[in-house]
Protein backbone atom coordinates (compact mmCIF):
# COMPACT_ATOMS: atom_id res chain seq x y z
CA UNK A 1 0.00 0.00 0.00
CA UNK A 2 1.19 3.50 -0.77
CA UNK A 3 2.13 5.89 2.00
CA UNK A 4 -0.14 8.85 2.75
CA UNK A 5 2.20 11.33 4.39
CA UNK A 6 0.56 13.78 6.84
CA UNK A 7 2.17 17.00 8.05
CA UNK A 8 1.24 17.47 11.70
CA UNK A 9 1.09 20.93 13.24
CA UNK A 10 1.80 21.11 16.95
CA UNK A 11 0.20 23.29 19.61
CA UNK A 12 2.32 25.54 21.83
CA UNK A 13 2.61 22.65 24.33
CA UNK A 14 3.74 20.14 21.74
CA UNK A 15 0.49 18.20 21.26
CA UNK A 16 -1.02 17.50 17.81
CA UNK A 17 -3.15 20.44 16.61
CA UNK A 18 -6.92 19.96 16.16
CA UNK A 19 -6.43 19.47 12.42
CA UNK A 20 -4.42 16.24 12.92
CA UNK A 21 -7.44 13.96 13.52
CA UNK A 22 -9.17 14.83 10.24
CA UNK A 23 -5.92 14.69 8.26
CA UNK A 24 -5.05 11.22 9.55
CA UNK A 25 -8.69 10.18 9.07
CA UNK A 26 -8.51 11.22 5.42
CA UNK A 27 -5.06 9.67 4.98
CA UNK A 28 -6.22 6.26 6.20
CA UNK A 29 -8.61 6.05 3.24
CA UNK A 30 -5.80 6.83 0.79
CA UNK A 31 -2.95 4.66 2.03
CA UNK A 32 -0.80 3.88 5.01
CA UNK A 33 -1.05 6.98 7.23
CA UNK A 34 2.39 8.21 8.25
CA UNK A 35 2.67 11.33 10.42
CA UNK A 36 5.56 13.79 9.99
CA UNK A 37 6.39 16.25 12.78
CA UNK A 38 9.20 18.72 13.28
CA UNK A 39 10.51 19.38 16.78
CA UNK A 40 13.48 20.96 18.53
CA UNK A 41 16.41 18.57 19.12
CA UNK A 42 16.11 16.53 22.29
CA UNK A 43 12.32 16.87 22.55
CA UNK A 44 10.70 13.91 24.30
CA UNK A 45 8.26 12.65 21.66
CA UNK A 46 6.85 9.63 23.52
CA UNK A 47 3.52 11.29 24.41
CA UNK A 48 3.28 12.86 20.98
CA UNK A 49 3.74 9.48 19.27
CA UNK A 50 1.08 7.93 21.49
CA UNK A 51 -1.32 10.77 20.70
CA UNK A 52 -0.66 10.44 16.95
CA UNK A 53 -1.12 6.67 17.17
CA UNK A 54 -4.50 7.15 18.81
CA UNK A 55 -5.45 9.34 15.83
CA UNK A 56 -4.40 6.58 13.42
CA UNK A 57 -0.75 7.20 12.54
CA UNK A 58 0.84 3.88 11.57
CA UNK A 59 4.30 5.42 11.93
CA UNK A 60 5.67 8.74 13.12
CA UNK A 61 8.59 10.46 11.43
CA UNK A 62 10.26 12.95 13.75
CA UNK A 63 12.50 15.60 12.21
CA UNK A 64 14.69 17.51 14.62
CA UNK A 65 15.94 21.01 13.95
CA UNK A 66 16.88 23.88 16.27
CA UNK A 67 15.16 26.37 13.92
CA UNK A 68 11.68 24.91 14.29
CA UNK A 69 10.27 27.77 16.39
CA UNK A 70 12.39 30.63 15.09
CA UNK A 71 11.93 30.41 11.32
CA UNK A 72 8.75 30.49 9.20
CA UNK A 73 7.83 27.34 7.23
CA UNK A 74 11.23 26.21 5.89
CA UNK A 75 12.08 23.74 8.72
CA UNK A 76 8.87 21.87 7.91
CA UNK A 77 9.54 22.04 4.18
CA UNK A 78 12.98 20.50 4.64
CA UNK A 79 11.54 17.82 6.95
CA UNK A 80 8.78 16.90 4.51
CA UNK A 81 11.16 16.90 1.55
CA UNK A 82 13.37 14.42 3.44
CA UNK A 83 10.33 12.31 4.35
CA UNK A 84 9.16 12.28 0.73
CA UNK A 85 12.61 11.24 -0.45
CA UNK A 86 12.53 8.31 1.94
CA UNK A 87 8.91 7.20 1.81
CA UNK A 88 8.00 7.94 -1.82
CA UNK A 89 4.39 8.66 -0.72
CA UNK A 90 1.41 8.66 -3.07
CA UNK A 91 -0.01 11.80 -1.48
CA UNK A 92 0.92 14.46 1.10
CA UNK A 93 -1.79 16.01 3.28
CA UNK A 94 -1.58 19.27 5.24
CA UNK A 95 -4.08 21.57 6.94
CA UNK A 96 -5.27 24.57 4.93
CA UNK A 97 -4.03 26.76 7.77
CA UNK A 98 -1.86 29.85 7.40
CA UNK A 99 1.25 27.97 8.64
CA UNK A 100 0.73 24.89 6.52
CA UNK A 101 -0.18 26.76 3.34
CA UNK A 102 3.31 28.28 3.30
CA UNK A 103 4.74 24.81 3.84
CA UNK A 104 2.61 23.23 1.09
CA UNK A 105 3.37 25.93 -1.46
CA UNK A 106 7.11 25.80 -0.93
CA UNK A 107 7.09 22.00 -0.82
CA UNK A 108 5.29 21.68 -4.16
CA UNK A 109 7.92 23.86 -5.81
CA UNK A 110 10.80 22.11 -4.08
CA UNK A 111 9.81 18.52 -4.86
CA UNK A 112 8.06 19.19 -8.18
CA UNK A 113 4.58 18.15 -7.08
CA UNK A 114 1.35 20.00 -7.65
CA UNK A 115 -1.28 21.38 -5.31
CA UNK A 116 -4.93 20.76 -4.61
CA UNK A 117 -6.02 23.20 -1.92
CA UNK A 118 -8.83 23.68 0.54
CA UNK A 119 -10.17 20.16 -0.02
CA UNK A 120 -13.41 19.38 1.82
CA UNK A 121 -13.10 15.68 0.98
CA UNK A 122 -10.51 13.36 -0.57
CA UNK A 123 -10.99 9.92 -2.08
CA UNK A 124 -9.24 7.39 -4.27
CA UNK A 125 -10.70 6.87 -7.71
CA UNK A 126 -8.87 4.06 -9.53
CA UNK A 127 -5.73 4.75 -7.49
CA UNK A 128 -5.93 8.43 -8.33
CA UNK A 129 -6.26 10.93 -5.48
CA UNK A 130 -9.32 13.09 -6.11
CA UNK A 131 -9.96 16.18 -3.99
CA UNK A 132 -13.38 17.82 -3.62
CA UNK A 133 -13.74 21.56 -3.21
CA UNK A 134 -16.51 23.95 -2.29
CA UNK A 135 -16.08 27.05 -4.45
CA UNK A 136 -17.49 30.59 -4.22
CA UNK A 137 -19.07 30.12 -0.84
CA UNK A 138 -20.57 26.76 -1.73
CA UNK A 139 -22.16 27.90 -5.02
CA UNK A 140 -20.16 25.20 -6.83
CA UNK A 141 -18.76 21.78 -6.02
CA UNK A 142 -15.68 20.78 -7.98
CA UNK A 143 -13.24 17.90 -7.97
CA UNK A 144 -9.62 18.02 -8.97
CA UNK A 145 -6.63 15.75 -9.36
CA UNK A 146 -2.91 16.15 -9.87
CA UNK A 147 -1.28 14.91 -13.04
CA UNK A 148 2.37 14.19 -13.63
CA UNK A 149 3.64 14.38 -10.08
CA UNK A 150 3.03 14.10 -6.36
CA UNK A 151 -0.36 15.42 -5.16
CA UNK A 152 0.07 17.83 -2.24
CA UNK A 153 -3.34 18.49 -0.75
CA UNK A 154 -4.35 21.06 1.86
CA UNK A 155 -7.53 20.18 3.73
CA UNK A 156 -10.11 22.66 5.03
CA UNK A 157 -9.95 22.54 8.81
CA UNK A 158 -12.90 20.75 10.34
CA UNK A 159 -14.26 19.55 6.98
CA UNK A 160 -13.38 15.87 7.33
CA UNK A 161 -15.32 13.80 9.84
CA UNK A 162 -13.70 10.44 9.05
CA UNK A 163 -11.40 9.15 11.79
CA UNK A 164 -8.72 6.49 11.45
CA UNK A 165 -8.57 3.40 13.66
CA UNK A 166 -6.18 3.90 16.57
CA UNK A 167 -2.71 2.36 16.37
CA UNK A 168 -1.32 1.15 19.67
CA UNK A 169 2.37 1.90 19.55
CA UNK A 170 3.32 3.47 16.24
CA UNK A 171 6.98 3.11 15.32
CA UNK A 172 8.90 6.35 15.75
CA UNK A 173 11.70 7.10 13.32
CA UNK A 174 14.02 10.08 13.44
CA UNK A 175 14.96 12.05 10.36
CA UNK A 176 17.99 14.25 10.12
CA UNK A 177 17.25 17.38 8.19
CA UNK A 178 19.23 20.37 7.14
CA UNK A 179 17.09 23.45 6.82
CA UNK A 180 17.68 25.15 3.50
CA UNK A 181 16.07 28.18 1.94
CA UNK A 182 16.24 31.83 2.96
CA UNK A 183 14.93 32.35 6.46
CA UNK A 184 12.17 34.61 7.67
CA UNK A 185 12.74 35.03 11.39
CA UNK A 186 10.07 34.74 14.07
CA UNK A 187 11.33 37.31 16.58
CA UNK A 188 8.64 36.83 19.19
CA UNK A 189 5.35 35.03 19.40
CA UNK A 190 2.25 35.25 21.58
CA UNK A 191 -0.10 32.27 21.50
CA UNK A 192 -3.78 33.09 20.91
CA UNK A 193 -5.60 32.91 24.26
CA UNK A 194 -8.33 30.30 24.25
CA UNK A 195 -11.69 32.11 24.38
CA UNK A 196 -13.45 29.34 26.27
CA UNK A 197 -15.95 29.22 23.40
CA UNK A 198 -16.05 26.64 20.60
CA UNK A 199 -13.78 27.34 17.64
CA UNK A 200 -15.51 29.43 14.96
CA UNK A 201 -14.50 27.17 12.06
CA UNK A 202 -16.05 24.03 13.51
CA UNK A 203 -18.73 25.32 15.91
CA UNK A 204 -22.25 23.85 15.63
CA UNK A 205 -23.72 27.24 16.49
CA UNK A 206 -22.38 30.62 15.35
CA UNK A 207 -23.83 33.93 16.50
CA UNK A 208 -22.48 36.78 14.37
CA UNK A 209 -22.80 40.52 14.75
CA UNK A 210 -22.48 43.35 12.26
CA UNK A 211 -22.25 47.11 12.10
CA UNK A 212 -25.83 47.22 13.40
CA UNK A 213 -24.50 46.49 16.89
CA UNK A 214 -23.14 50.03 16.92
CA UNK A 215 -20.24 49.87 19.38
CA UNK A 216 -17.79 47.44 20.98
CA UNK A 217 -19.74 47.68 24.26
CA UNK A 218 -23.02 46.86 22.58
CA UNK A 219 -21.38 44.01 20.64
CA UNK A 220 -21.35 42.17 24.00
CA UNK A 221 -24.97 41.22 23.22
CA UNK A 222 -23.66 38.95 20.44
CA UNK A 223 -21.32 37.25 22.90
CA UNK A 224 -24.14 36.85 25.43
CA UNK A 225 -26.36 35.05 22.92
CA UNK A 226 -23.44 32.92 21.73
CA UNK A 227 -22.79 31.83 25.31
CA UNK A 228 -26.49 31.10 25.94
CA UNK A 229 -26.46 28.79 22.90
CA UNK A 230 -22.99 27.35 23.50
CA UNK A 231 -21.83 28.82 20.21
CA UNK A 232 -18.92 30.69 18.67
CA UNK A 233 -18.86 34.43 17.98
CA UNK A 234 -18.63 35.63 14.39
CA UNK A 235 -18.71 39.06 12.79
CA UNK A 236 -19.07 40.92 9.51
CA UNK A 237 -16.09 42.74 8.05
CA UNK A 238 -17.72 46.07 8.91
CA UNK A 239 -17.88 45.03 12.58
CA UNK A 240 -14.22 44.00 12.49
CA UNK A 241 -13.22 47.23 10.72
CA UNK A 242 -15.11 49.23 13.33
CA UNK A 243 -13.10 47.49 16.05
CA UNK A 244 -16.04 45.73 17.74
CA UNK A 245 -14.11 42.45 17.68
CA UNK A 246 -10.85 40.93 16.43
CA UNK A 247 -10.27 39.98 12.80
CA UNK A 248 -10.22 36.26 13.60
CA UNK A 249 -14.00 36.46 14.08
CA UNK A 250 -14.67 37.64 10.52
CA UNK A 251 -16.98 35.41 8.49
CA UNK A 252 -17.11 35.68 4.72
CA UNK A 253 -15.24 35.89 1.45
CA UNK A 254 -12.04 37.11 3.07
CA UNK A 255 -12.69 35.69 6.52
CA UNK A 256 -13.57 32.25 7.82
CA UNK A 257 -16.01 29.98 6.00
CA UNK A 258 -18.46 28.36 8.40
CA UNK A 259 -21.14 25.72 7.91
CA UNK A 260 -22.77 25.31 11.34
CA UNK A 261 -26.14 23.78 12.20
CA UNK A 262 -27.32 27.24 13.26
CA UNK A 263 -26.10 30.68 12.14
CA UNK A 264 -27.64 33.75 13.71
CA UNK A 265 -26.91 37.08 11.97
CA UNK A 266 -27.49 40.12 14.17
CA UNK A 267 -27.44 43.57 12.57
CA UNK A 268 -25.75 42.21 9.43
CA UNK A 269 -27.02 43.38 6.04
CA UNK A 270 -25.93 40.21 4.25
CA UNK A 271 -23.64 41.59 1.56
CA UNK A 272 -22.70 38.96 -1.02
CA UNK A 273 -19.18 38.69 0.47
CA UNK A 274 -20.63 37.92 3.89
CA UNK A 275 -23.03 35.32 2.52
CA UNK A 276 -20.09 33.63 0.77
CA UNK A 277 -18.86 32.55 4.20
CA UNK A 278 -22.08 31.30 5.82
CA UNK A 279 -24.75 30.43 3.29
CA UNK A 280 -24.25 26.68 3.62
CA UNK A 281 -25.29 26.76 7.32
CA UNK A 282 -28.14 24.31 7.95
CA UNK A 283 -30.44 26.87 9.59
CA UNK A 284 -30.01 30.63 9.24
CA UNK A 285 -31.69 33.17 11.51
CA UNK A 286 -31.44 36.91 10.85
CA UNK A 287 -32.51 39.95 12.84
CA UNK A 288 -32.33 43.27 11.07
CA UNK A 289 -34.33 46.53 11.25
CA UNK A 290 -34.31 46.85 7.47
CA UNK A 291 -36.90 44.57 5.80
CA UNK A 292 -35.02 44.84 2.50
CA UNK A 293 -31.68 43.61 3.90
CA UNK A 294 -30.32 40.86 1.61
CA UNK A 295 -29.61 38.59 4.58
CA UNK A 296 -33.36 37.75 4.60
CA UNK A 297 -32.97 36.13 1.16
CA UNK A 298 -31.16 33.24 2.83
CA UNK A 299 -32.75 33.25 6.31
CA UNK A 300 -35.01 30.40 7.39
CA UNK A 301 -36.29 32.56 10.23
CA UNK A 302 -36.05 36.30 9.67
CA UNK A 303 -37.15 39.02 12.05
CA UNK A 304 -37.55 42.62 10.95
CA UNK A 305 -36.75 44.17 14.27
CA UNK A 306 -34.23 45.78 16.57
CA UNK A 307 -31.60 43.40 17.95
CA UNK A 308 -31.66 45.33 21.24
CA UNK A 309 -35.36 44.49 21.64
CA UNK A 310 -35.47 40.99 20.19
CA UNK A 311 -32.28 39.45 21.59
CA UNK A 312 -32.85 40.34 25.29
CA UNK A 313 -36.35 38.87 24.97
CA UNK A 314 -34.94 35.75 23.31
CA UNK A 315 -32.36 35.41 26.09
CA UNK A 316 -34.97 35.61 28.83
CA UNK A 317 -37.31 33.24 26.98
CA UNK A 318 -34.48 30.70 26.69
CA UNK A 319 -33.60 31.25 30.34
CA UNK A 320 -37.19 30.76 31.56
CA UNK A 321 -37.66 27.53 29.60
CA UNK A 322 -34.45 26.08 30.90
Amino acid sequence: MTTALVHIELTADGAPADSAAGLLGAAAALGDPVAAVTVAPGTDTADLATALGSLGAARVLVAETPEVDSVIATPHVSALAAAIEREQPGVVLLAHSIESRDVAGRLAVRVGGALAWDAVDIALDDDRVVASHSVFGGAYSTTSAVEGGLPIVTVRQGAIDARAAAVDAPAVETLTVEVTGAAATIESSTPVRPSGRPELRTAKVVVAGGRGLGSPERFALVEQLADALGGAVGASRAAVDAGYIEHAAQVGQTGTTVAPDLYIALGISGAIQHKAGMQTAKTIVAINTDASAPIFEVADFGIVGDVFQVVPQLLSALESRR
Binding site: L115, A116, A139, S141, T142, T143, V146, G148, G149
Partner: peptide, 13 residues
Protein backbone atom coordinates in the same frame (compact mmCIF):
# COMPACT_ATOMS: atom_id res chain seq x y z
CA UNK B 1 7.01 21.85 -12.99
CA UNK B 2 5.99 18.72 -14.83
CA UNK B 3 3.08 18.24 -12.42
CA UNK B 4 -0.16 20.16 -12.66
CA UNK B 5 -3.57 20.28 -11.08
CA UNK B 6 -6.61 19.61 -13.26
CA UNK B 7 -10.32 20.15 -12.64
CA UNK B 8 -12.25 16.92 -13.17
CA UNK B 9 -15.84 17.93 -12.47
CA UNK B 10 -17.75 21.11 -11.74
CA UNK B 11 -21.30 21.26 -10.53
CA UNK B 12 -23.46 24.19 -9.52
CA UNK B 13 -25.32 23.75 -6.24
Amino acid sequence: SSASSVVLTCEQR
